[in-house]
Amino acid sequence: MPPVIEVRHLSKHFKNLTAVNDLSFTVNEGDVYGFLGQNGAGKSTTIRMLLTLIEPSGGSIELFGSSLKTNRKQILRQVGAVIEKPDVYKYLSAYENLQLFARLSGVKPTRELLMAQLDMVGLAARAGDKVKTFSQGMKQRLGIAIALVHEPKLIMLDEPTNGLDPQGIADIRNLILHLSRERHKTILVSSHLLSEIEQVATRVLIIDKGKRLVEGTAAELFDPSQTIITIDTTDNNAALQLLLQSKWGSFVQAQRNSQLILKLDRIQIPQLHVWLVQQGIGVLALQPRHSLEDYFLQVTSQNQHVEAFTN
């Protein structure tokens, strides 16, 4: 599948804060790409850079094979987005909001089209009501209808389940699956709710403090025969060097701040342990992780602990 999003060495600095740091990733056509990270990890900043709301400090972004910087208008015609809160004009009705944004997106807003979109997100019965009377979940659904009204090829959803009740979260999840499977959209969805991403994403990228931690297909990350392990040793730097120079090097997933995160078959774990000891490395802890949530918490919290320690 051809790449729809190609991000290379992207960075963004705000005065003393580095929000995104040398981030690279690729989203292929048809992917539901889960963009994971804790609050403040840099997900929203990255998505805003992909939508030209924020100017990158460095790096490059290509969408549909074209530079976003030089082909912004043509690219944005093919993109629909919901950015955090789906804020719309509260003094207009759902129908009027959708009509307005459809026109802005270059679509002739026929009544049939608009009502079909509202029906898809379950708002047809409230089409004429002012948005100020809507709940957060209804606004979120209207935001998604607005994002989809011009039939974009790429949809970016930044924390789409924020503020929703369990039913609303399930509705959004089903909608994402419908858009991916039935309408063949490429979707980039960011969230800090791992369970949501776990159920819809075909590929997942985890970032922390603006840096890429790990990326893989959902199958790779959740393959029951494969296990993510984190290792703490008496000398993590030396262990890392040894691992990278050995047959174990290809299993290393992350090497941030000397933390060792590997993905390998469960059966290989004892062999790795023995090998490390044979190399003179004392193994203090070797922890298998099975779920993405565990894994996510592990890689992000270890990153924080190590940075606190090294600082």
Partner: peptide, 14 residues
């Protein structure tokens, strides 16, 4: 303030 500026700027206009 309304938050609609974000959405406006994602539309294909400079």
């Amino acid at each position: 303030n309304m938050g609609t500026l974000r959405l406006l700027l994602t539309k294909p206009y400079s």
